[in-house]
Design a protein around this nucleic acid. Structure first.
Lengths: 171, 171, 171, 171
DNA sequence: AATGAATGAGCGTTCATTCAT
DNA sequence: CATGAATGAACGCTCATTCAT
């Protein structure tokens, strides 16, 4: 991915966050990216494909910055939770969700992302598959509640679920 | 609400489910409803107001069919859970969420819906406010996961959270 | 013209003044008139015909309230000028002008109005046909200037023209 | 302004004259201009802005062709008067006036035009500000009368007002 | 590689008018 | 008389996409 392509993906991210999915047009993305709008189709073929690339990077960015699971899992404090919220990643995920309902390919890409997150949570905290599914659910669910209602106690909710899990086998 | 108005609201629901929010235009809703598109503005004034009416009905439908809380709360089986999924209500909620990002009025209406659901869960299962927030989060979160991944163990996840709560005070 | 018809014409006038010609729809006129919109077509057949009736009344209203020419014409003070401005008649005339460009029948009706005004001015002030044409022109022209520029010296302009005319023959 | 932009402005002018302001839609302007309707928004952003550009050209066209004031003002013959009528400029002004009632920005642009005309008349004929206001009024007023009534003695009226002014100081 | 002109479908909305009741 | 449901054309505008340069 050359410099221009990267500028476009970054512009798409910025536009999505600043304008929302309904106002994220190809031309507007090009403005945020500082490139000519024609280049978006030149490099990505379609707006849909650009979004898919953006989701790909979204997933990589989280993977890269996540602490690798090591030693005894620490459930007392959820650094992962903050990771998910870093850099407006939570807002972005909600926009992806909105875009996914209009494109099966985006939906599929997003499915990969959430599955990957579950796997990561599972390894990170030494959880069963069901526990990681529960944790992933509560994270997304509380994000949505918080989006609608700024007073929603996101952190309390996530901690509550984390605390409910049995101590890890390695303890 | 007369017959035509109801046809329009029902058409909007059908269109949203069949086409997704981006392809749900006023003209397309009219087709699904089997009415002239002008009637939508005649009766509802705007597409936004129609969606708000639809959300209103969405909320009422759930309320009506929910079992009233009674006696000792039964946490062993969550019939409420199935209610949320009935009639594609889960899919619909996702579309509402997508629509809410472009309309503060829709967002506000949706906020009322999720708050009302939390209150209901709280009364139904004899939960603390934090517990009902957690339960509501896990319900929405797992709905979304299941939307993206048909194999997602929704029911297990919700039971897991319900079981984690302390026995109700009345026990 | 029965009571309902009169309410409609009065409503059309009020709507035109309050909303301007572009926002003066049949439904809106009906609201201002406090009648059902269907009655407008029932009584007048079309919006165009209603406007024509309104212009008719506009003309009559001015005629009725104008002082009859009598004795020696008084050019020292232009009561007529104020008459033209009374009850927002000037604003109304401008709206008629805008409507006239889309309907030959309205244009024709308006032509009658301005000709009638010229005749009246001629008799009132003892002017020649050319002088009354000049006076009528300066009145409309300064109305338009004042519409665009609130500081325009309407009254000065009209007095200037009146004063320029030779003393009346009867003096 | 490239060729296409000029075609659009010219098309807008032609459409306004041929169809009147109510039938001058963006799509119809595009037909008169022989271009795709999307280009109008591509180049001008909005119909309103296009009209403002048209008024700008309207003003420039008159300025360019007007004789520069020079030497002793000649009030015996008003060539300026003919300029105002050239190329249907009088009809156009009326349409602008109608458009101005729905757009403050168009109204403001039109105000500039009429003020500029007054300044020009003042310099051209060596008039006082009040005299130029009077002359400008009578010009617009008689244009409107002539628009409604083809027999209206426009030229006589304008000459009458010009002749009424005191001889210029330089005489 | 990069530009921006051009296209045509579609959007939410307004409207004059018709007509069954 | 009076009502308001119903219709269909038109409105200004946005958009993803194509393509000649």
């Amino acid at each position: 991915m050359n410099e221009t392509e990267q500028k476009i993906v970054t512009g798409a991210r910025a536009c999505l966050l600043a304008e929302g999915h309904t106002r994220t047009s190809v031309k507007r993305i090009a403005e945020y990216a500082g490139v000519n709008h024609g280049l978006i189709h030149h490099y990505f073929g379609s707006k849909e494909q650009l979004i898919i690339e953006l989701i790909e990077q979204f997933q990589c960015a989280i993977k890269t910055r996540m602490p690798a699971p090591h030693g005894a899992p620490d459930r007392s404090f959820p650094p992962v939770w903050h990771l998910f919220r870093e850099d407006s990643n939570d807002r972005l995920l909600l926009e992806f969700l909105a875009l996914a309902t209009e494109s099966p390919r985006i939906a599929e890409k997003l499915r990969e992302v959430v599955q990957s997150r579950r796997s990561y949570l599972q390894a990170m905290f030494g959880l069963t598959p069901e526990q990681s599914a529960t944790l992933a659910s509560v994270i997304i669910g509380s994000l949505i509640h918080q989006q609608l209602d700024a007073d929603f106690p996101m952190e309390t909710v996530v901690r509550q679920v984390l605390d409910s899990f049995q101590p890890p086998a390695s303890a």
